[in-house]
């Protein structure tokens, strides 16, 4: 009995080293199969990049981790997705709570047409937090976390829409961080930004990984190389190769991966 208990403890601690897990996942949009039998383990406090040509299923797969695909017509999924060993597709799972835990940043910055302060405080306010001091402190600390505080501290009541694209994207990340998620999903977060804003976001991702588990979809091979610890190459709904980024960009196992990352295919 004691031995069995110990084994269970060891097994569960081993499992915990993975923050996100996908088991035998298939995704269909009507008759079209977008994801084919994907299983994947993503380590906590790491950055994992999804790369692959357009339409390969990487964004669809990313959105499985906060159930964003639930809104898509004809969407159907088989298999299981776990976050901290919890199956997130069970009926009892509160999707709002899930999205608080799993934040998302999109390709195009999408601040609310509200003030900078309100944008960051929004998530907390809808949770019923009214304590002004707490809100102020959280807004300040979060804006500092995304390195935006110094640029906006004197204009917190200004419309978020007046910020530059790069600032808006950092504001959106701040909005995500304010509700203290443990996972951040990013779908091409810098594809609409200039190189300087991109560098700031990349620096931010590098800082954030100490506290969060980050999964990023990117079409920029150099970006994947610069910021991620692990890289998964998707093609036609399958994972062709998933390995340490170092390995993928220096000596990939599969010829298909090499052809893609060197720009010869896809």
């Amino acid at each position: 009995m004691g031995k069995e208990k110990n084994e269970n403890v060891i097994e569960s601690s081993l499992k915990r080293k993975y923050k996100l897990q996908a088991k035998d996942v298939n995704v269909f949009y009507g008759d079209f199969q977008a994801i084919k039998e994907i299983s994947m383990d993503i380590k906590a406090n790491s950055v994992t990049a999804f790369i692959g040509p357009s339409g390969c299923g990487k964004s669809t797969f990313l959105r499985l981790f906060n159930r964003m695909n639930d809104y898509v017509d004809d969407f159907r999924m088989e298999g299981k997705i776990f976050i901290d060993n919890q199956n997130i597709n069970k009926k009892k799972v509160n999707v709002e709570q899930l999205r608080k835990q799993v934040g998302m940043v999109f390709q195009k910055p999408n601040p609310f047409p509200k003030s900078i302060f309100e944008n960051v405080a929004y998530g907390l306010k809808i949770q019923g937090i009214k304590d002004k001091t707490f809100l102020k402190e959280r807004v300040e600390s979060t804006l500092k976390q995304v390195a935006l505080w110094d640029e906006v501290k004197d204009n917190l009541n200004k419309s978020a829409l007046a910020l530059s694209g790069g600032q808006q994207q950092r504001l959106c990340i701040a909005r995500t961080l304010a509700v203290e998620p443990s996972v951040i999903l990013m779908d091409e977060p810098t594809s609409a930004l200039d190189p300087l804003s991109t560098a700031k976001i990349e620096e931010l991702i590098h800082e954030l990984k100490h506290k969060y588990t980050i999964v990023i979809v990117t079409h920029n091979m150099q970006q994947a190389g610069r910021i991620s610890d692990y890289t998964a190459f998707f093609y036609l709904g399958e994972i062709i190769e998933f390995d340490k980024t170092n390995k993928i960009f220096t000596n990939p196992e599969k010829k298909q991966t090499e052809n893609y990352i060197t720009g010869r295919f896809g």
Binding site: Q222, G225, F249, T250, N251, P252, E258, I261, T262
Partner: peptide, 9 residues
């Protein structure tokens, strides 16, 4: 060209 993999080697 920022080569990677075989090109970089």
């Amino acid at each position: 060209h920022t080569p990677v993999a075989g090109d970089l080697r």
